[in-house]
Structures are given as C-alpha cells and as structure tokens.
Design a protein around this nucleic acid. Structure first.
Lengths: 346, 346
DNA sequence: ATTCACAGCGAAAACGTTTTCGTGTTGACA
DNA sequence: TGTCAACACGAAAACGTTTTCGCTGTGAAT
C-alpha cells in the first residue's frame, strides 16, 4: 500500500526544491525545460495528484457545494440533485448531500457541519418543521458569514438570497382550469395544511381558477390533509378521509391534488367506489413522478421540471461564487410548469 | 459580512498566543481557568468553529465518505443513500455523492475527483458500462493507495474489498417458488442481459426454482431485455416485446420480473390482453419501490432492504477507517430479502 | 573590467489547526 | 539565598499546496 505521493517527496527524490516541482508541474517558464520534463515524467510515473484539501486550505475555497434537502427517497428531490450534480460536475464542483429529514434540528446541525469550511455555498429546500416554526436564524447567520445560499422549491420571503421556484399558483390554476374546461362542475382539491408554502399557493391557484369560471368555492370540496399523517404507513387514514370526501359530496367530478401520491390514492378510492376515470371523474396531480406515469389510468400531472430546477440552482450558486464583485443582486428564477396530459383526464 | 473568525484573530484580540487559544478551547489544564473562561467567552460570542479543511489537512482525514452510484432518480439507490447518510451522520461523517450515470468514464472521473484527499473512503455500486467492459483498474488503484472501498449490490469478485449484497439467487428462487406453490404451471421471466450480474443471478434463481418443481425451462418463457432500451422513453418497445411474449405463449400464468418496472409494465400488457390478475396470471417483481405499492393491483415484490444495505455499507467502511490494525480482512455482508405479498399473487 | 539583464532555482510565507517542547515566573523549601 | 517543582504560556513544526521574492551564476554589452 503506497500512500499518495506529495510534492515534498518528489522534490526529495529529484533533489530539487518543492517550489521547483510545483512550478515544473504547472509548466512555469521559470523552470528549464530539462527540469520540467524530468519532474513531469516522475510525477506521471508515480501518478501524482495535488491534494485537494491542501488546495482548499490555500485557496480558501473547496469547489464543493452543499445540498440540504428534506428527503432523498423522493422523485422530485432526487431529480433536483441530478440536475445539481450535472452542472456542478461540469463546472468542476463536487456535491455533498445532507438530509434534514423534514426536521429543524437536523437541518441546523447539517448546515453547521458543512458551513465550517467544507463547502463554498448551499443549495437547499427548507424542511417542513422549519417552515412551521418559522425560525430562519441559521440561514441568516450562514449568509451573514459570507456563504451564499440558493433556495429551491420551498423558499421563504424573509430570507434574502437567490431562489429557484416554480409558479405554484399558475401551475395549479392551469390544472384546475383544465378540469373546468373539460366540463367538471364540482372540482375538489386535496391539499396540505397552509404552513407548507407550496400547499398554500396551490390552493390559491385552485381558488382563482374557480373564480375565473364564476364558481364559488365550497368548503366541502376542500380537503386539507395533515402531512404528518402521511408518513408512509398512515396512508390508510388518508384513504378514509378521501372516501369521506367523496361520500359527503357525491357530485364530485374532478379532483386536483397537490401532489402525486394524493392523486393516486384518490383515484384508487374513486375506483373502489365504482366511479369510472375519466368518464365520471377526472384527476390531476401536482408533481410528475414515476407513479403518475405508470398508474392505471396514467395520471395527468403538473410537471415541475425538477432536474431543471437543480441545474438552475447550481448555475446560480456557482455564478455567485465565481463572481468577484461583491454586490448583492439576488435573483429569483421561476421555472415554468407543464401540464402533462395522460389518461386521467378527458 | 463578517468572515468566519479564526484562532489567530482570537489570539490577536485577546493578546495571547494561538496555542493558548487552541488549548483553552479544548479545556486543557495547561491553561489557567481565567484565561480559559476569557477565551471561551470570546469564542462563543463570535461563534467560533474550527475550520474543517484545516483539520482535515492536519489529521490527514476528512471525515467524509464518497458515494458513487449509477443513478439517483431511482428508489433503490436513494434508499441506500438514506441509509448511508443515516449512519455516516451518526458517526460524524459527511457524505459526498457522485453519479456515474451508468458510464465507465464518469465513474473513473468521479473517483479521481474524490480520491485526491477529499474523502476517506468509497461506497459504490458499479456502473453497467464498467461491468460490461470488465475494466476495474480504477478500483484496484484506489485500494492500492490505501483508500478503502465498500461495494454494494453490483459487485465483482475480482476486487478484494468489503461488500454488501443481497442473495439475488435465493431471493428470486423464493419468489418463483411462491408462484409455483400458488399453482402456476408456466412461469415466464423478464430479465436483463447477462452482463448485469444481478440479472444473471436472478435468472439462475428462476431456473433453480423450476428445477425444484421438476419443471424444465422453456426458452419461450425467458425474455432477456436489453437494458439500454429501457432508458425512459423506449418503454413502448419493451411493451411490444412483452406482448409478443404473451401471445407466443398464451399458457403463461405467472411472471417473475427482475425489477419493479418490468413487472408493472407486464401487468399492464396482461390487463390490456384481457387477463385477470391474479386469477389468470400472477406477478412478482424484484426490488420493492413506490410503484409496486401503489399499482393496481399492488405488486408482490422481493424487498431488497436498500436502506439497510446503505447502513451496513457505511458501518463497514467507517469501522474499517477507524480500525488501526492494518490487517486486511474483508467481509461480505449478505442482506436477506423479503417477499412482500400484495395483490398480484393469490 | 565593470555593469547589467536574465535564466534558473530556492526560501519562506500563507491558509488554520493541533501538539510537542521549551521558557519564564512564581512560591515553597532547605 | 539558592534550588526546584509547578504553573502558565509561547514558539515552532507539521499537514500539502502556491506564489512572491530574492539569490546566484552566466554571458553580453559598455
């Protein structure tokens, strides 16, 4: 087991100074061609690579970006990571991942672990618990220490930084409009409690679409699910809630759900109640994932373009890192959503 | 924007030496209680944290582990990452992620980027292209430079290192046994080309199960799909292949697929051909994911316990890193699979 | 013969830590 | 008063780079 070779060792072997070796390897004209060739040959032979950590320390940058997401076993977030990784790698950066697991504490801890020199900047999506507690001091501190942050998807106005979001309002409005245009008279929405910003916005889009069609919203048609319950195995209770929704209101002929899973489950419940999709009732879900594509019937969705979000976020961050002017001019990039029509709508 | 504070700055402000500050912060008894308190108060006030990069350089370890996987938008791999992250964090390590995207070159590049001091060890699953080319020099080099590797899922005998795998043979044999025990007389298998080691093993399990039941395999019942074609949008051709399989062999009453997607698609094709699931035909897929759970009917699967694989792999790696004896004694941990029975089987 | 330019190289600082080894000051004791 | 331990602290090296600056020697120009 031969340890990685260093400049010092090469210098000793070749009986020159460390500076000479360093310069020779970088093809400095200060060094004679003879010496250069000798050093380079030796370096290649022993497969020399500069130690990244030493470089990071010297340059005071790590060429690494930290990503903190609430959950990785999730189609949307993993697509975002793929996007981040893609442009990060292309531009010579590494990606280090932290999972908050939707917990405030883990989010804080993770950020602290990374903020001490390990990375040059953050890309993150805020955990639900943080959103609920509305405690954003860790973001502010990080930024005030000169470490840039790019937030995506779940963002918050209170923090001044680059952001990449989708137009949740417009996306859901479009979706509901589609249902209405398809002839639905009683469109229900399955959404989350309001502290999840995207849930709130998507609900608002629903309301605006109704308004466009001069329909007044009915409380009976709005189901606000407590996300905490949906943690994997409480799905059964969700089914019951949806079943109750349908039974209480048997004129429902359209459903808009703020995520894929809610929509899929709602379809299942509807089918069990004997309704035909899309003849009797039509469905649209927000967030396009594997489930939607392979469900029966396949689900019409609002595609969020997760990978593109990741790409844009990484671009924003790296641009920021590599810009030398210190002026703050934060941008918010809005990614357009796209209605992917499948078989759950007419 | 106040830059992160360093020992040197604290020392200057408090008019003591750097060593004193360092010792005071670590509560060394060398330093008088007075000074200690003064320093610690100051450090807390300015929120001092030791610079990780400097520590890494000094200690010659980064407390970071590198993970290289072929794809992240994938239920299994993201579960593995979650497992890795879980134990890594618990033991004070960070996780840096590289995606090979199933490409040999990207795998090599990624490993080189990380092997130069950025990480202490690797956890990886080999890309398909690498498996196909059977070129493993980058693994050997990495290991010979003293950087430990733990391979999971897609491993290769040729490389001597810790491994975490599942018993693909046993898992698929159990699955096919289940179908046979349920009365299936003509069980088809939908698998991959043989260079994917897991595909090969799972096929073998299928054959052994048949053998147990004194059935001889029929070439007509074995469909080997070219993975390259399944890249997202060539699914249509896969459907055609499966349809052909069913039509050529209309006695098929059981299907074992080596992954979830193949099984789901096969179910769809079967349904379109008018077969009833599970009455006329039963299905089992390898790899338990979201699709299986929410499909209609829900799919019986062989659960691989991805998260557990990740946890074990990380445990193995960190144990190795923190062990001081230099003896090599590589282990291979086998994770038991589990048959998750749902509605696609009787 | 003196100066000068220039080529070729080395010393040292810097990045931020930790740790080993000194060093100076006290107080106690003989 | 002289010796010695204990105490409190500082200097410096080390981790592996890059870069600035200075040094030496050679050949040419005056």
């Amino acid at each position: 087991m031969k340890r990685k070779i260093t400049l010092k060792q090469i210098a000793r072997e070749l009986d020159v100074s460390i500076s000479t070796v360093s310069k020779a390897l970088r093809n400095s004209i200060e060094i004679s061609e003879d010496t250069r060739e000798k050093v380079q040959a030796f370096a290649k032979l022993y497969n020399y690579r500069p130690n990244n950590i030493a470089l990071s320390l010297k340059n005071r940058k790590t060429k690494t970006i930290g990503v903190i997401i609430p959950e990785i076993v999730h189609h949307f977030f993993s697509k975002v990571i793929r996007g981040i990784e893609l442009v990060a790698n292309k531009r010579g950066y590494n990606v280090i991942v932290g999972l908050s697991n939707e917990s405030f504490d883990k989010e804080v801890i993770n950020m602290q672990m990374l903020a001490n020199g390990s990375i040059d900047g953050f890309i993150l999506s805020i955990s639900k618990e943080t959103l609920q507690q509305q405690d954003y001091h860790h973001f502010k501190e990080t930024i005030s220490q000169g470490m840039p942050i790019v937030m995506f998807d779940r963002v918050v106005n209170e923090i001044n930084c680059d952001k990449v979001i989708i137009d949740d309002l417009k996306g859901s409005k479009n979706a509901v409009n589609k249902l209405l245009a398809n002839g639905c008279k009683n469109v229900a929405i399955i959404t989350t409690k309001d502290y999840v910003s995207v849930g709130k916005l998507r609900t608002q889009g629903y309301l605006e679409a109704l308004d466009d069609y001069k329909m007044s919203p009915k409380a009976d048609l709005i189901l606000k699910v407590d996300d905490a319950l949906v943690s994997e195995d409480h799905l059964a209770s969700l089914e019951l809630e949806i079943e109750a929704l349908f039974k209480k209101n048997n004129a429902i002929d359209g459903v808009f759900a703020v995520n894929e899973l809610y929509a899929i489950i709602a379809m299942k419940v509807a089918r069990n109640l004997g309704m035909k999709i899309p003849e009797d009732i039509q469905f649209i879900g927000f967030t396009d994932g594997v489930l939607s594509k392979h469900a029966t019937p396949s689900l019409t969705t609002v595609n969020q373009h997760g990978q593109e979000m990741g790409e844009k976020a990484a671009g924003l961050l790296i641009d920021n890192l590599e810009r030398d002017d210190e002026e703050e001019h934060y941008q918010t990039i809005i990614i357009e959503t796209e209605l992917v029509e499948r078989n759950s709508t007419k």
